Simulated assay, not measured.
Amino acid sequence: MRPRFARQQFDAPPHAVADAAADIAAAIGRAVEDVWPDIERKRLEFEVEVEGLDDDASDDDRLFPISEDDLFTILRNLLENAARYTPEGDAVRLRCELGRKRITVRDTGPGIASEECGRVFDPFYRVLGTGVTGTGLGLAIVKTLAEKYGWRVTLADAAPTAAPGAKGLAVTIEPCED
């Protein structure tokens, strides 16, 4: 049996994803349900904001051009990382912009130094000195799945003016503009 990461890398050829469509509200619900015990255990402030989900939104507005399982996996990995690295009692925020098909997860953890940003997408790579356990696969899986659908993943400081080690992290996934 191959590890989950290997399955994510090799399962679907790019042409097989053309008709994929996932309901963002359902995917968020599943991902939050999976990560909720960690959020509760650390007493994190947690917020979800979905821009464009109003009475005028059609069912198609809620759909993302990605398989439901892949969107769930992306969201779960981003939320799991945010909960893992955010200090007890701090905050994690998920923001989705339906019109732009953009998702951003922000946390108030230590952030990632700019010189490490490229490396954190490598399988099994972990930033040293965080005191947090893990396999180093979360962001590698997120990037692999995003690229499968022609999306990009960007990392930024959630609070750029904060002191080093307290900048938090904002991870955004969105379709690449051609």
Rank of each mutant, 00 (worst) to 15 (best):
A91L: 09
M1D: 10
L79T: 09
E51C: 12
T172R: 01
V48C: 07
P13W: 10
A83E: 02
N77H: 12
A12E: 12
W36S: 09
A113K: 13
V48N: 01
R30Q: 15
T86V: 10
A21I: 06
E47R: 04
A82I: 11
R30F: 14
R62I: 05
P164Q: 03
G138E: 02
E47M: 12
A25K: 12
E40D: 15
W151S: 02
R41P: 14
A26M: 15
A6V: 15
R106A: 03
G89R: 03
V127F: 09
T144N: 06
K143T: 15
A6S: 11
I173D: 05
E115H: 12
R100P: 13
D59T: 15
E51R: 14
D11Y: 13
K42Y: 02
P160L: 01
N81M: 00
E80P: 08
G138D: 04
A170W: 00
Q9H: 10
T108N: 00
D70Y: 06
R93K: 11
D107Q: 04
L78E: 13
A22V: 01
L139E: 09
D178C: 15
G118F: 00
V132T: 06
W151R: 00
R76T: 04
G150N: 12
K101N: 07
G52L: 03
A163P: 15
L75C: 10
K148C: 08
R93H: 08
A83S: 07
K167A: 08
K42E: 02
A140L: 03
E47A: 09
F46S: 05
D56L: 07
G109P: 05
D60K: 06
D34E: 12
V120N: 05
T172G: 00
I112A: 13
T144R: 05
R4E: 13
G118K: 02
V132G: 02
P110K: 00
L75Y: 04
A18Y: 07
E97Q: 15
E80C: 11
Y125A: 01
G118D: 06
K143W: 10
T161A: 13
A18K: 07
G111A: 13
C117N: 14
W36K: 06
L44G: 02
G136T: 09
A113I: 10
T73N: 02
A6K: 14
A20S: 04
D60H: 04
A31E: 10
I24R: 00
A20W: 09
V153P: 04
R4P: 14
P14E: 12
V92R: 01
L71P: 11
D69S: 10
G89T: 09
R95T: 15
S67P: 09
S58A: 13
L155C: 12
G99H: 02
F46M: 06
